[in-house]
Nucleic acid binder design. Structure first.
Length: 330
DNA sequence: GATACGTGGAT
DNA sequence: TATCCAAGTAT
């Protein structure tokens, strides 16, 4: 992992950069290492320091984050970078309490940054740690109710020295050996101490409260091509789904057929065959895509035309990219 | 405590 | 195809 400073690096005098640790931890929230890698490389190459990031344009950061999901993270990332740059002299705080004050930094990230970047003896509890603790101590309380109990257990094991290395080791254990399904108990270094292994309950832990089924929502988006190639895009409001991101104007997304709405611009609309399907955290979406070609002088009611050379499908959320693909392959 | 909030890969 | 799941946070 490009952000990791291992024991060997540390022995060679490498000191972790809190900016890089913080950035990686924000990206890793509910997101796999594989998905984060390229984004981390692009962000650190384009904005090498927290001051560089603080000086960035909002739309550039949102475009760079596009595709990674949970876009509130990107908005809070910028807020946080600006607080650190403008109010903290460009220096990240090193205590959990101070880190918790920063936008987008919760209990996990605060613990991770203080332990990994500053070698503080902080508790670090992510999904991996919860699973490892639940098994190690055979905790049957379902999540998320079990969180305080599991945090207390994690705290009891957190060492005074090298807590960052320890935290990463436990997370690595959870990611590679003590996995949700088919845990590799046979090669687990903690097998001798594992109470769930003893009880034969490891694979069933941690217990989780059942989740609700996802409803299906429907909507319409409009992809408008101007004769010079420009595309009609709209910046979504900061609050809510895909907040702050560019997208195609369209209807609201609701259960049962798309609601009444107005097209973003007067045109002869053609409905594309098929639909763009996408699943969000709490609902499935089926998007109908309508397209039209409009003359230069036609003014949109919503959104603005983006010149062809300024548009990249990688700058918009995946669901919008799916709609664009339907349009582009038409 | 419950809900909103993305995405892609694994099974 | 459908569900589960990943280094969570904000409200």
């Amino acid at each position: 992992m490009p952000w990791r400073v291992g024991p060997k690096d540390r022995a060679n005098g490498v000191i972790p950069d809190p900016y890089r640790i913080w950035l990686s931890e924000i990206m890793l929230q509910q997101t796999t290492v594989a998905a984060v890698k390229d984004y981390f490389e692009r962000f650190t190459k384009r904005w090498p320091t927290v001051r560089d990031l603080a000086d960035a344009q909002d739309e550039d950061v949102m475009a760079e984050w596009a595709g990674l999901g949970y876009y509130a993270r990107a908005r809070n990332l910028l807020k946080c970078a600006r607080v650190v740059a403008n109010e903290k002299g460009g220096v990240f705080p090193d205590t959990v309490d101070a880190l918790l004050e920063l936008p987008g930094v919760g209990p996990y990230t605060a613990g991770a940054v203080s332990a990994i970047a500053f070698d503080k003896s902080s508790v670090v509890v992510d999904g991996n740690v919860e699973r490892v603790m639940a098994r190690l101590y055979d905790v049957h309380t379902p999540l998320p109710a079990a969180k305080p109990e599991l945090t207390a257990l994690a705290e009891s094991l957190t060492p005074l020295e090298r807590a960052g290395d320890y935290a990463q080791a436990v997370m690595d254990l959870g990611a590679t050996i003590c996995t949700p399904r088919n845990p590799a108990c046979g090669i687990c270094p903690w097998r001798p101490a594992c109470q769930a292994r003893l009880a034969g309950t490891a694979v069933d832990l941690p217990k989780k409260t059942p989740k609700k089924p996802k409803p299906i929502r429907f909507g319409v988006v409009y992809i408008t091509r101007r004769v010079d190639g420009a595309l009609l895009l709209e910046r979504r409001p900061d609050k809510g789904l895909l907040g702050g991101m560019l997208g195609w104007p369209g209807s609201e997304w609701v259960e049962k057929e798309a609601p009444k709405h107005q097209a973003p611009i007067r045109a002869e609309w053609k409905t594309l065959n098929g639909e763009a399907r996408h699943t969000f955290t709490h609902f499935h979406l089926r998007l109908t895509v309508k397209t039209a070609l409009v003359p230069m002088e036609r003014e949109p009611a919503v959104g603005h035309f983006l010149p062809l050379e300024d548009f990249s499908p990688t700058d918009i959320p995946t669901v919008m990219r799916k709609a664009f693909n339907l349009f582009h392959s038409d």
